[in-house]
Design a protein around this nucleic acid. Structure first.
Lengths: 201, 201
DNA sequence: TATGTTACCGAACATATTGTTCGTAATTAT
DNA sequence: ATAATTACGAACAATATGTTCGGTAACATA
């Protein structure tokens, strides 16, 4: 990619991020973004068709780092704790989010976080579905499977939002622990399963 | 309130509700609302300063019915189940939401639900805080109290969204049951507490 | 029924935002 | 060096916002 393109793209992301700290997304004008990023009007529209596309691109950019290929794979080598690696996966996500702290805080603050959360949940949903598929059949619950997934995704997203709203004053490990503590994950992935895990085919 | 005012207000709410079924809130213009409601331009602005104020008024209107005074009080006479009336409270909320189904489905559909959810959570948060204040001190958990409240509120809100997205095909009782099933409420309000509840001062 | 009040109408207006076009200048890759 | 790509910025049409105001209709009260 041309350096100029990358430079423009970065400037726009940074500008939007900065503006989001002060006002909500829908009340930010393209002109403000242009001024803040210090680029030409036509340049903006050469990069993004609309303001919405810009936000989408920005979220996609962030999540491509947060949800790395490694993370999305079912193979995890950390089985510490009694939830078969899930907790370490979540901790991992939180660390990556912290790396992007400057951008994300802007997006989430000032009542504009809903759009970010929407995209975030899409990624989380895929991760949880893939990860839990091996367990869900064996669990006896009244609630439908999609409800269970939705619940786990939604409440982890809420956890992240709470964490960021609290300026990340808790460590990723603590935060992931809190989530596991209030979730019912121990009823889906019982300790027993971990003990027998070496015997699974 | 003047009948004309009420009539105009209703027409605007109905119009917005209808438009929200087709497109997201931020892409709806005041002109479209005016045309759909069949009112004069100046009339709209006499009622609402901005489009945002309109949505807020509409949500407040709905929630004033859903979160009735009776519901918000700590005194509940239904202690069936082992969660000291919480489940029946939630079921109650779901029934009221179903009464407003026509309006709510419009608000929640087409990627515009986030704003509704925001206001919804504010009400839920107050309810849960008030309701759980008597229990939280006695529970031994690592997670901070505000995290716990946030988790319960967020995941119930997610439950409601899931329920509505599924066209309310489950009954309020079933849905509340699913929520209680995946929550950790039984660790906050143990059965034992209910048995002793007649002895509390 | 008469009267004062209030709400609605709708056209017109200034202002602001959006998204496009195009000729020119600067930067980049080879 | 040079050809291709990108950024610039002014100008533009189209659309949306929020206000003003004179006239009309509906309301409450007596």
């Amino acid at each position: 990619m041309d350096r100029r393109q990358q430079k423009t793209r970065d400037a726009v992301f940074k500008a939007l991020s900065s503006l989001l700290e002060k006002k909500r997304f829908s009340n930010i004008t393209v002109q403000e973004i242009i001024d803040e990023a210090n680029i030409g009007r036509s340049t903006f529209y050469a990069h993004f068709d609309t303001k919405d596309e810009l936000l989408k691109a920005m979220c996609t950019d962030i999540f491509s780092h947060v949800f790395s290929d490694e993370l999305m794979s079912e193979e995890t080598h950390d089985f510490s704790g009694n939830n078969n690696g899930l907790e370490s996966k979540l901790t991992h996500i939180l660390y990556h989010l912290k790396d992007n702290e400057k951008n994300i805080v802007g997006i989430l603050s000032c009542e504009s976080g809903e759009l970010f959360m929407k995209y975030f949940k899409e990624y989380l949903s895929e991760m949880f579905s893939q990860y839990l598929s091996q367990y869900l059949n064996g669990v006896k619950m009244k609630a439908p499977a999609d409800f269970v997934i939705n619940h786990l995704v939604g409440s982890f997203a809420e956890t992240v939002k709470w964490w960021i709203d609290n300026r990340m004053k808790y460590t990723p490990e603590e935060t992931a622990r809190y989530y596991i503590e209030v979730s019912f994950i121990d009823r889906i992935i019982p300790d027993q399963y971990v003990l027998n895990s070496t015997n699974k085919k």
